[in-house]
Design a protein around this nucleic acid. Structure first.
Length: 490
RNA sequence: GGCGCAUUCGUCUAGCGGUUAGGACACCUCCCUCUCAAGGAGGAGAUCACCGGUUCGAAUCCGGUAUGCGCUACCA
């Protein structure tokens, strides 16, 4: 007996790691971890034509990034390998042969052209499309004739013509399908590769998968799978179909909806832990209020009974908010590490590398509560690193002021800053606030002019702290540059 | 066309016969404030797709309709 839960994520390496697939992986992983079970990765590379180079690596990277570790599968090994279906062809071919000899499957010699014609005809006559079972009852002579013609057949399942198939789904409950609505699906293609249906049930059985968690789009093919399990004499696993992920237009989430690859989110500066939390909430909830959950919280509380049946629209705005929360909750040291990397990647190439950790350490706390994604960090802090600021002169002139009054304010500020004994936040504030009064300006006006002069931006971290980090020399130089710009305006 | 499934604020959702239908994102207002954020306090937003039925009572149970989505490949 093996009471332990074994779940699997079985991606097909035909493209990038889609967030919808990653969500399925996450749920399977959470279910396994919650139950102290085993999480398996199996690569379903049975479609030679659609196979994409590097896709396996991309998917594995995505899983690793999210923190979904697997106990068996590529790189991890395991007792049920190999974990690539392309390395298990013998198994499927044997299963197909067995089904044929049992009378549960048959060889089909129909050409793609004939099938296409047949379907076209069916749609024209508004008939339900499906294989017409042309080869189901071929005689021995007819078969050998086709073989002599050199046609390699496919193996099709001999779906029962009558009766019904029922199965239970943990999330959707009981379903009944009439067998008459199912056609004879292909099990083994003419290239010797299995179709999803065959490979899937053979492997789920061989790998002793106890719970199949997969997207809702598979719900309609589950009766076929149940029929296959029966024909093979296998005990079917438990099924749990997950609600689909939709784009804002309510259609299946895809490329046209923007970022759909998990790697896009990594590149856009999202934290994997935020991504995991967000994805977990798409189709699952703990209660009526808990939203922020750590990886351990999720493992502890995940349950299939609280998975919803309705498709969810992927809402990037909420993800962004959640990412901001996670960034703010990072320890200063943790945030620093991520900032360092974001800066290395996002700062202009003329900035000297490697960056000074001590310098970045002073900057990080200034932006931690101001960014929602890591890619915003270099955008918001580039003035700390570049030599030459590039900005529109008019940004220097605060509201209700003109070039001349701005000039005067900056000039006086410059002089006082030169004389300031200690160039720290407190003294700076102690100097500049009264200076605003003296110049008959609002604090916001003076600070605004200085902010632009020193950072080149209208929105920036708090002024005094920023000036301290930049240092007196740089601040004075930048104020002088600002004055020069104002001069050139006239 | 056939089969299947779903339907609570714009979005994610709570709800499992009796609630002023709750929370979150986004939005709006105010407070805080040197900008931007963050934070605090409020606000608006759902006749629970629609129509019938069951019931003293329905978002919750049962029919039907509509809409949407999925499957209907030698793709997964």
């Amino acid at each position: 007996m093996s009471p332990s839960v074994r779940t699997r994520f079985a991606p097909s390496p035909t493209g990038y790691p889609h967030v919808g697939n990653m969500r399925s992986a996450l749920f399977a992983w959470l279910f396994a971890r919650h139950n102290g079970g085993v999480f398996i990765i199996r690569i379903e590379d049975t479609d030679v034509a659609r196979k994409v180079e590097g896709a396996v690596e991309g998917i594995l990277d995505g899983l690793r990034w999210l923190g979904l570790d697997w106990d068996e599968g590529p790189e991890a090994g395991g007792d049920y390998g190999p974990y690539f279906q392309s390395q298990r062809l013998e198994l499927y071919q044997e299963a197909a042969r067995r089904l044929v000899s049992q009378g549960d499957a048959y060889y089909c010699y129909c050409s793609p052209e004939r099938l296409e014609e047949m379907r076209a005809d069916q749609t024209r006559r508004k008939q339900p499309p499906g294989y017409d079972r042309h080869c189901r009852e071929l005689s021995q002579e007819e078969r050998s004739k086709k073989e002599k013609e050199g046609i390699t057949p496919v193996v099709r399942f001999k779906t029962p013509l009558t009766g019904e198939t029922r199965f239970h789904d943990i999330i959707w409950g009981d379903s009944v399908f009439k067998n008459s609505t199912l056609d004879d699906m292909v099990l083994l293609k003419s290239d010797g590769y299995p179709t999803y249906h065959l490979a899937n049930i053979v492997d789920d059985h061989e790998m002793e998968i106890t719970h199949v968690l997969r997207a809702e789009e598979w719900l309609s093919s589950t009766p076929r799978h149940v029929l296959l399990y029966d024909a093979m004499g296998y005990q079917p696993p438990e099924f749990a179909h997950l609600p689909m992920l939709l784009g804002p237009d309510r259609s299946k989430l895809g490329k046209r909806h923007g970022a759909v690859s998990i790697t896009d989110y990594r590149e856009q500066g999202y934290l994997p832990e935020a991504m995991m939390n967000f994805l977990a909430l798409l189709g699952w909830s703990l209660d009526d209020r808990t939203e922020l959950m750590s990886r351990q919280d999720l493992i502890d509380n995940f349950s299939l009974t609280r998975v919803s049946k309705t498709a969810a629209i992927f809402n990037p705005e909420k993800l962004e908010w959640m990412n901001g929360v996670y960034i703010r909750n990072l320890s200063p040291e943790d945030f620093l590490g991520r900032v360092l990397q974001a800066l290395e990647e996002g700062l202009p190439s003329e900035v000297e590398r490697p960056l000074s950790v001590d310098y970045v350490r002073q900057i990080a706390p200034l932006v931690q509560e101001r960014v929602k994604t890591l890619v915003e960090v270099p955008l918001l802090t580039r003035f700390f690193f570049v030599d030459c600021l590039d900005y529109d002169v008019t940004l220097l002139i605060p509201k209700n002021m003109d070039a001349e009054s701005t000039r005067r304010a900056l000039e006086v500020s410059r002089q006082r800053l030169v004389e300031l004994v200690s160039f720290d936040a407190e003294p700076l504030e102690g100097l500049l606030r009264p200076l605003a009064v003296e110049l008959e300006l609002k604090a916001g006006q003076l600070f605004g002019a200085l902010r632009t002069a020193v950072t080149g931006q209208k929105a920036a971290p708090p002024l005094f702290e920023t000036m301290v980090v930049l240092g007196r020399e740089t601040c004075l130089a930048r104020i002088e540059q600002a004055l020069a710009r104002l001069d050139s305006l006239e």
